[in-house]
């Protein structure tokens, strides 16, 4: 198998997947629309006697929802009905994983871009539907910062997608993971809620309190690669069209 052969197959599969999994874009639109509605409540507010009340509006909820959407969409890709559609024409496991990796990146890009833009949509909506005075926070931003911001969002979404992909692949590999992984996630959440577990909060800080763009880039792509490596190894013996 040469790289040219592999590249050709990956490219074909990539475009095929766009047609195949077009439904994921609908679910993106719905997810983000719901998130925007939730955002109308504001993410926080301060009351002050002199100037009344200040509501903070941001697209954070949209982002969180998009992360969830990416995770679940990627997980779906690994399930049997999706795989049966995927393994129809020319493929092997490696080309399939690589094209999924790229497809999820494309998906994240669209999700990230629309999440970013939904911040503006939110401002417009709030301005139109509520009788508020808008106070911009970061109106003057250079294009470079905007681009870096969008790329960062895309990278985070991609990371969540690859996590979902890894979870899905592990479940395909061993059904035990279907019970194990949700228990671990819920367990972690409980730990955070009850005792503010240091380790988990540190993981959160490691990823989300990083101010250097370069480090964000390195951390997320490294995580993505790790997730795909685990997925590829765990499904390398997977039989299709059973």
């Amino acid at each position: 198998m040469s790289f040219a052969e592999l590249g050709k197959a990956v490219r074909k599969q990539f475009f095929y997947k766009f047609k195949l999994f077009f439904g994921l874009f609908y679910s993106l639109v719905i997810t983000q629309a719901i998130a925007i509605v939730f955002s109308f409540n504001g993410t926080g507010s301060i009351s002050s006697g002199q100037i009344g009340q200040i509501h903070f509006y941001s697209a954070d909820i949209v982002l969180v929802f998009t992360f969830g959407w990416a995770f679940i969409s990627a997980l779906q890709l690994t399930t049997k009905p999706f795989r049966d559609n995927e393994y129809l024409f020319v493929f092997n496991r490696l080309s399939s994983h690589l094209s999924n990796l790229l497809f999820l990146l494309a998906l994240s890009f669209i999700g990230g871009l629309s999440a970013y833009l939904s911040g503006y949509l939110l401002k417009v909506a709030v301005y139109m539907f509520f009788d508020f005075q808008l106070i911009g926070t970061n109106d003057i931003t250079s294009p470079a910062v905007v681009v870096a911001g969008i790329i960062t969002i895309v990278l985070y979404i991609w990371m969540f997608a690859s996590l979902g992909y890894m979870v899905g692949s592990l479940v395909q590999f061993q059904k035990v993971f279907a019970i194990l992984i949700p228990s671990i996630i819920i367990g972690c959440l409980i730990l955070v809620a009850l005792s503010e577990s240091e380790a988990i909060i540190r993981i959160g800080k490691f990823y989300f309190f990083e101010s250097s763009f370069l480090l964000v880039f390195i951390k997320t792509t490294a995580t993505v690669c790790l997730c795909f490596l685990i997925s590829a190894v765990s499904t390398n013996h997977l039989e299709v069209r059973k």
């Binding site: 198998m1 052969e5 592999l6 197959a9 020319v90 493929f91 092997n92 496991r93 490696l94 080309s95 390398n236 069209r241």
Partner: peptide, 11 residues
Amino acid sequence: NSLYVSENSIY
């Protein structure tokens, strides 16, 4: 897992 066989065979 062979791309070559996948491309040159069909089931």
